[in-house]
Design a binder for these strands. Structure first.
Length: 592
RNA sequence: GGCCCCAUAGCUCAGCUGGAUAGAGCAACAGAUUUCUAAUCUGUAGGUCGCAGGUUCGAGUCCUGCUGGGGUCACCA
């Protein structure tokens, strides 16, 4: 007997595959998918066409044989043939109810059953010292956090590392800029090895002004840039004053980014950064040199990563610039080695802007070449597209500046509050609850809008559209869950009990079918690192629920068996909607 | 210039390894409520899938060329 806890589509595919096997055909032709034409069936299999092509036979004849085999199982209410050889099927209700009973008894709705647990490291967030997080960090954080939750849901052991940008040339630029502004600070005294003050000489607001100043100065003043380069090198070599100053800048910046990450509900098990590779660096550089993996090119130490059959140009990875300082490729490579030592991961996923794909390709190749990671470990750049304004170009403020993440979130919360107030139902909430609802709705609106796009696509940021309660929005999904919560509260007040499932209406069957597809969605989302698949799933689910809600009264239902069954169905649906939204990083309030 | 990605309804986008009549949402129009929260549901209308070839029984999907847009091409991150 087939296992009942695995995904419904896999079960059906196995079953139909067996039928193909009995006809001496490859079982892989038995792949079953949700029907494109629901009026003809719940599921379909198109394998007869492919099999016919391969076996040089008539597709309809093959399909007829398959149908005959499937009839014998007794699991189907209806099996039919259509067109050139499409097999349409409808399961009988007993089977569906049994299946939903089984998966609803499992916290993952049967999804874990189809997943082999592994140790996965997620590298996302990627804020930088002194720079306020901006719209570019939005997707990295939202997608990364969602993948973290998804993998945890599927039973993986997940390490999430924020990987602070804290070690490159910008550090030298900041040090020199601070020196210009406050030359008397002890950090700049020749030979001063500390100890230094425990109080930061700069506030976060100052830092955020210092950085653009330093950046601008570097472009105009070659001497300043050169000084910054030297400072970067000295910092990396352990200059005591610079290190102390750097630590202050890092601490101040970390505290600031935590506010943003908290707003977005992102969690990190590690707050590491590029700088944490410093102790590892000399050994790694030495090894690459000794093993003949690196060489000097134009004064820089590089690893050649081009391969014979490359179509595209593949520049070497620069480990050390000609001035001796390391670059972010070097720290990324060292980070891989450290992660290998610390965690022995099966996968390392980098949730970083798609524009950095060449960089990761170089780093991954260098890591393979230098055996920095075990062969079986998967290294993957999970890229994503840009967030655009209504003009189709990357989102900018009115005066062309960078949009800060904080203001983006605050605007969304303000917009959500406006929408709730406009609905005119706010008199039910006190100020505190309204705040809570606005925050949850605003953040959900942004997250759902972001995650529902395929990762690699760019999308247009339109907060008014995102906060609408109609259509494919975060709030629509939450609203369905809130409706159920309200209903279950009333049921509890009236002492109504849940009972075994019975099928009395199409809307119930459709809802159960939607519920049954979670494992498929979760596994595909994990496999492709594509949260949008889960967004599609929860949208289909909430739509089916809303139809059910419209067609089938629950609390007022006179027949106790039907009523208690529907209460059960509502409870399962709520749990699944909340589970999926939770994976997407969306919290559902009690009311809204 | 080389390489990579994209082009689908008025708008924002789906379309999984080629499979039936190309789908959603928004906007438009027509309906449904003495609400279990209508912030909902049902229906109608809307398409030469950028252009031109090719492979195939079958192409939005695969191949080639073209047009338009974006990204990227070693000492920034």
């Amino acid at each position: 007997m087939i296992r009942v806890t695995t995904s419904l589509l896999n079960q059906l595919s196995d079953l139909v595959g067996q039928a193909f096997e009995k006809c001496d055909l490859d079982p892989s032709f038995g792949k079953v998918v949700v029907s494109q034409r629901r009026e003809l069936g719940q599921f379909q299999c198109n394998g007869a066409l492919g099999a016919a092509k391969k076996a040089k036979k008539n597709p309809r004849e093959i399909a007829e044989k398959i149908v005959a085999e499937l009839e014998k199982t007794g699991l189907f209410n209806e099996l039919s043939l259509a067109g050139p050889g499409f097999i349409n099927m409808r399961l009988n209700d007993e089977f569906l109810i049994k299946h939903i009973d089984q998966i609803s008894g499992d916290a993952s709705f049967g999804a874990r059953d189809g997943h082999t647990p592994e140790t996965v490291i997620l590298d996302f967030g990627g804020p930088n010292v002194a720079k306020a997080m901006h719209v570019g960090h939005l997707r990295a954080t939202i997608i990364g956090e969602s993948l973290r939750r998804l993998r945890t849901f599927l039973g993986d052991s997940v390490v999430s590392d924020v990987h602070f940008g804290d070690w490159g040339l910008p550090m030298g630029m900041l040090i020199k800029e601070i020196e210009l502004a406050k030359p008397d600070l002890p950090y700049f005294e020749e030979g001063n090895s500390g100890p230094f003050s425990e109080v930061s000489p700069v506030t976060v607001d100052e830092l955020q002004l210092l950085y653009p100043a330093a950046s601008g100065r570097s472009k105009e003043d070659p001497e300043f840039l050169e000084a910054a380069r030297q400072a970067t090198f000295k910092l990396q070599q352990g200059h005591a004053g610079y290190r102390a100053l750097w630590q202050h800048m890092l601490d101040v910046s970390v505290n600031e980014t935590k506010i943003d990450f908290d707003l977005l509900g992102a969690h990190f098990t590690e707050w590491k950064g590029e700088a944490d590779t410093n102790d590892h660096m000399p050994g790694m550089l030495d090894r690459f040199k000794k093993e003949g993996l690196s060489e000097i090119s134009d004064g820089a130490v590089v690893v050649h990563v081009a391969e014979e059959d490359d179509k595209k140009e593949m520049p070497p990875l620069i480990l050390q610039k000609s001035d001796g300082a390391v670059m972010y490729g070097t720290t990324d490579l060292a980070t891989i080695e450290i992660r290998q030592q610390d965690h022995k991961p099966d996968s390392i996923l980098y949730v970083v802007d798609a524009r950095q794909s060449l960089h990761f390709e170089q780093v991954f190749r260098a890591a393979r070449k230098g055996k920095s990671i075990t062969e079986h470990t998967k290294l993957e750049h999970v890229g994503f597209g840009t967030v655009n304004g209504k003009d189709g170009k990357p989102l900018k403020t009115r005066d062309g500046g960078v949009v800060r993440l904080r203001s983006l979130i605050e605007d969304a919360i303000a917009e959500a509050r406006k929408v709730v107030l406009e609905a005119g139902l706010d008199d039910r909430f006190d100020a505190e609850e309204l705040d809570n609802i606005a925050k949850k709705v605003g953040v959900a609106a942004i997250k759902y809008a972001d995650l529902s796009n395929p990762r690699m696509s760019n999308y247009v940021f339109d907060i008014e559209r995102f906060t609408k309660f109609e259509g494919r929005t975060g709030p629509y999904q939450m609203y369905a869950a809130v409706r159920i919560k309200s209903m279950l509260r009333k049921a509890a007040e009236q002492g109504l009990k849940q009972g075994p499932l019975v099928m009395t209406a199409d809307a119930e069957r459709n809802l159960i079918l939607a519920l049954s597809l979670l494992p498929e969605a979760a596994l595909a989302a994990a496999d492709k690192n594509a949260p949008n698949i889960l967004c599609d799933h929860v949208y289909a689910l909430t739509q089916e629920f809303n139809s059910f809600y419209h067609d089938c009264h629950v609390l007022g239902e006179k027949d106790e068996a039907v009523r208690s069954s529907r209460l059960t169905l509502c409870a399962i649906t709520l749990r699944q909607i909340e589970t999926v939204l939770q994976i997407l990083g969306i919290d559902v309030p009690e009311r809204m």
